[in-house]
Write a protein that binds this DNA or RNA. Structure first.
Length: 444
RNA sequence: GCAGCAGUAGCUCAGUUGGUUAGAGCACUAGUUUGUGGAACUAGGGGUCGGUGGUUCGAAUCCACCCUGCUGUACCA
């Protein structure tokens, strides 16, 4: 690299975007195959919608209407603004509205797709990530809400999490609505500030939340956050509400009954679960991990939830007049991958190819013959992709973690018995071509 | 966005109060071994010290601004 490097394209990635390597992708594939299997079992339809939508299809449901395009990546196509989707729920609402007459009602669909958020990234948190969504549209039945939780739990356990490693926290927007009535808050901004404060109880504890409900709070770095300015007697009422051990709203009482019928008990009633969204109208879920997650320096980090959801009875109605009450749940797959990879006992099998070394270009036909036989037997096999000294070829095989190499030089070709070298223990044996596949299977 | 900390080789870092040609380990390349990887030894390549401007006889080191990263915080459909 010389002076010219200034003229060369940057090898840096845009903020919040990452290359994902095989190890991670295989874990992701493992999770996806579990999801698909369970979705079929639960009877959801598979759907894909495009990455881009017209901005007004997703933008006009933003909670803060005063800054409609903040947080999304957008560009102007001809004269219309389009944006990369920021979740899979808004596109679902658009899809349901567009296809309302054709789709079954209720409509159950699941979707796997990349979403983009123009926000500051954090550990295990990117500006481009894969999300899984499952929703019921067109039913008010609480059976749907309950089943979503049971289903998520089945997915997590299928992926290797034990009951003690995760919990689904549940609350209802109805609880906070009643609370607001009780303490007489009507102003929307104050409601939002209050909800956001409550949402932080995990991290800040009640004392921090109390500060945010009152005048405000100074964080570790010295930054100051303005509070909701509630009266201390109202804060007292909120504190009492948060202490409740069991729900007194009808929806949650019903949902918990259904859980019992499913024998599902890995949930927790938690009135501090808020999920910040304005569009939720009933039950709210949040999927939390119960073990520490660390960054690549080994420090424990604030990881937050790996997914959540809830009931949103009015969202589809934003596109017109539809009878489409809905409930859904989503998981951030990359966050689940990140967390899963931290579990020591978690392993995903990677099959690496057996490498056939190249001694002499004129013997290519012989190498190909061995390759065809092994591939036919279902063994991942490659002829060394290059022209190097044997030492280089061995180093290559070692580097890609190949289980074995096949040495098929002049002498071996003459006798029809290639040498199989086990790269884990260095042992070599000379084997007839037609017995090669079976021998290799013993090694793998 | 706000705040704190930090940017020296591909990676992890050292670099003394400003002083010649900027160092180490790992990785990489070549060789010791022209049919044998993971060990050892030898040699080698690789840096406008994040960028720009300033102070100075002299800056990786001091100052200003900018960029990037980490952590917290805000926002998070």
């Amino acid at each position: 690299m010389t002076k010219e490097k200034n003229n060369k394209p940057s090898k840096e990635l845009p903020l919040g975007f990452v290359d994902r390597q095989e190890k991670e992708l295989l874990v992701r594939d493992f999770i996806i195959s579990n999801i698909k299997e369970i979705m079929i079992k639960y009877g959801f339809q598979y759907l894909e919608t495009p990455s881009f939508e017209y901005s007004d299809s997703i933008g006009k449901f933003l909670p803060d209407k005063d800054r409609p395009d903040e947080g999304v990546f957008s560009f102007k196509d001809e004269n219309k603004w389009m944006s990369l989707r920021y979740d899979l729920t808004a596109p679902l609402a658009r899809y349901v509205a567009k296809n309302y007459l054709e789709i079954p009602k209720p409509f159950k669909r699941y979707q796997l797709g990349t979403v983009w958020r123009n926000e500051k990234p954090g550990p295990g948190r990117f500006r481009e990530f894969l999300q899984f969504d499952a929703d019921f549209v067109g039913t008010k039945s609480l059976q749907a809400d309950a089943e979503l939780c049971v289903m998520i739990s089945e997915i997590l356990e299928k992926c290797g999490l034990t009951k003690s490693e995760y919990v689904i926290k549940i609350s209802s927007r109805k609880i906070t609505e009643e609370l607001f009535k009780k303490i007489n808050i009507n102003e929307n901004q104050q409601k939002l500030t209050t909800l956001r404060a409550l949402d932080k109880i995990d991290r800040l504890g009640w004392s921090g939340v109390k500060e945010l409900l009152g005048a405000g709070r100074k964080d570790k770095s010295g930054d100051y956050t303005k509070g909701a300015n509630l009266k201390s007697k109202d804060i007292k009422v909120i504190e009492e509400t948060l202490k409740k051990k069991s729900p007194d709203t009808e929806d949650l009482v019903e949902i918990f009954k259904i859980f019992k019928n499913y024998n599902f008990n890995n949930f927790e009633f938690d009135p501090s679960v808020i999920r910040g969204l304005e569009y939720y109208t009933g039950a709210i879920f949040e999927v939390n991990l119960k073990f520490d997650v660390t960054n690549n320096r080994g420090q424990v980090i604030q990881f937050g939830s790996i997914g959540g959801g809830g009931r949103y009875d009015n969202l589809v109605n934003n596109f017109g007049n539809f009878d489409a009450p809905a409930t859904g749940i989503s998981i951030g797959l990359d966050r689940l991958v990140y967390a899963l990879m931290q579990k020591k006992e978690f392993k995903v099998k990677q099959s690496k190819p057996v490498v056939i070394c190249v001694f002499d270009k004129n013997s290519m036909k012989e190498y190909i013959n061995v390759q065809l036989i092994l591939r036919k037997a279902g063994i991942s096999t490659e002829i060394y992709p290059g022209e190097s000294k044997l030492k280089k070829q061995m180093e290559y095989a070692n580097k890609i973690k190949s289980p074995a190499v096949i040495l098929y030089g002049e002498d071996e070709i003459k006798s029809g018995k290639p040498t199989l070298r086990n790269l884990r223990n260095g042992k070599e044996q000379s084997i007839k071509i037609n017995e090669l596949a079976n021998e290799i299977k013993k090694i793998i």
